[in-house]
Structures are given as C-alpha cells and as structure tokens.
Design a protein around this nucleic acid. Structure first.
Length: 220
DNA sequence: CCATTGATCGTCT
DNA sequence: GACGATCAATGGT
C-alpha cells in the first residue's frame, strides 16, 4: 500500500504478529482476544502504537448492525475477504473508524477498534489530537483511535499480520478473563441489545457509553 | 459530572 | 434524499 514509510521504531521488535487463526475463528472469540493487542502504524512523521482496551464485534451478513448486512458493496468489499485485513470507513461526514476483518473468508465479520492506550509515539499522537486533555483521551473512542494512529480510508486492505506492512497488529499483554467485560454496542441503531462490546474493566482509556441517539433533522 | 447540539459528506435507498 | 459503528464545544447541576 502506498504512502507509508516504515521507520523501524515503535514496539515491533518486542512483539510478534497477531495469530491469523484466532482472527479467522468465531468473531466473538477474536474480539475478546484482541483486547491487549497492539496496533502499530508507521507514517511520514513517525510511529504510533496503541494497546486495545475496547472493541466491538459485528457478525457479517446475519447482523443487522453490520456494514455487511445488506451484502457486498464498493465500501465493504474487504470484509468479505480473509481475516487480518484492515477496514477503515468514514462516518458522520468527518470521522474515520478502523476494523479488523475477522471470521472465515466470505462471512464478512469484523471487529471495530473502539479504544486503546497509546504505548508508543505519544508526542506524535498529541500533535494529531490537540483537543486531548490527557494521555488516556488520545485513543478513547473509535474516531479518536483512528485519528491518533493517522489511519484513513485508503489504508483499507492492508494486511495487518504481514511484518512488512506499515500498519501491523501485534500480540500484546494478555488481558485475564476476570478483567474482561461485555455489554451492549455503542451508537448502533439496531441490535444494540446484543452484548458484543467487549472492554477491559476499569481501564480509563475505555470510551464513555452512549446509547444510539438518532436525531431528526429540523424541517425548514 | 450530565445533556444537548452543530458540524459535515460518503454511501446506499 | 436521509442517515449514520462520532466528536467537541457549550451550558447546566
């Protein structure tokens, strides 16, 4: 993928690529295992890495909240491929959000990366996110996480498990079962009752919960 | 702390 | 043409 230069910095040499077999299995299992994993991104200004503290599972074509629910489109095509690839989409006219494609090929499941802790490249992360008032806010929420890492739509399709990629998913510190919490997904208008949001209990980098608020446009 | 609201545009109906 | 897998600013408790 074009545009990114490897810098060799960050935490890469301390970790290994995440296991594609785990990502290729049931999406809920993959999501749970992604807690504590590290997403490391090289860019022209340096490397930033985030350890994941909150994720959300989307179960392909059988999940009304999934981008793949109504079948393959130009936007969601990468979701129908193998696990371990990046899917970045644009929402609300201004924000990017990142997913890792999970599950067997053609199932079109994905895990939304909702929040994490910056573990490398904090200076660059702060430059990208001047509104952040604390370190824990830098990647607290899916659009903030994408922004902190500098990820945009053209990064879609990157193989996160290829050590040569500029965007890499690495093993991190395992989160023990006792610290894993589940709850309803955030901001989704349908199937919000399914407890497929998964996070690290008590972690200050986890995003605040907001139920879906679909606001009507004011008639002119 | 909590609730409300404007911003802004790609995507799919 | 309507609607978001959201954020930041604002104002109240």
């Amino acid at each position: 993928m074009g545009g990114r230069e490897g810098t060799g910095g960050g935490v890469g040499r301390l970790s290994r690529p995440f296991d594609r077999e785990i990502l290729s299995g049931p999406v809920l299992t993959a999501a749970r295992e992604l807690l504590g994993a590290v997403l490391e991104v090289d860019g022209p200004r340096g490397t930033v890495a985030v350890a994941l503290s909150e994720v959300e599972a989307y179960a392909g074509m059988v999940d009304p909240a999934s981008h793949a629910y109504r079948g393959r489109t130009a936007r969601n095509g990468v979701m129908f491929g193998p696990a371990g690839f990046l899917y970045v989409y644009f929402v609300y006219g201004m924000h990017w959000c990142c997913n890792v494609v999970c599950g067997p090929e053609d199932e079109a499941s994905a895990v939304l990366l909702r929040a994490g802790r910056v573990v490398a490249g904090e200076e660059l992360a702060r430059a990208r996110r001047p509104a952040a008032r604390s370190t824990t806010e830098l990647a607290r929420g899916p659009a903030r996480l994408a922004s902190t890492l500098g990820l945009v739509g053209t990064d879609t399709g990157t193989d996160l498990l290829d050590p040569a990629s500029a965007i890499r998913l690495l093993t991190g510190t395992r989160v023990p079962d006792a610290a894993v919490r589940h709850g309803p997904r955030v901001g989704v208008a349908v199937a919000a009752d399914v407890p497929w949001r998964i996070w690290v209990d008590g972690d200050p980098t986890v995003s605040p919960y907001r139920p879906n608020t679909r606001r009507r446009r004011i008639p002119t």
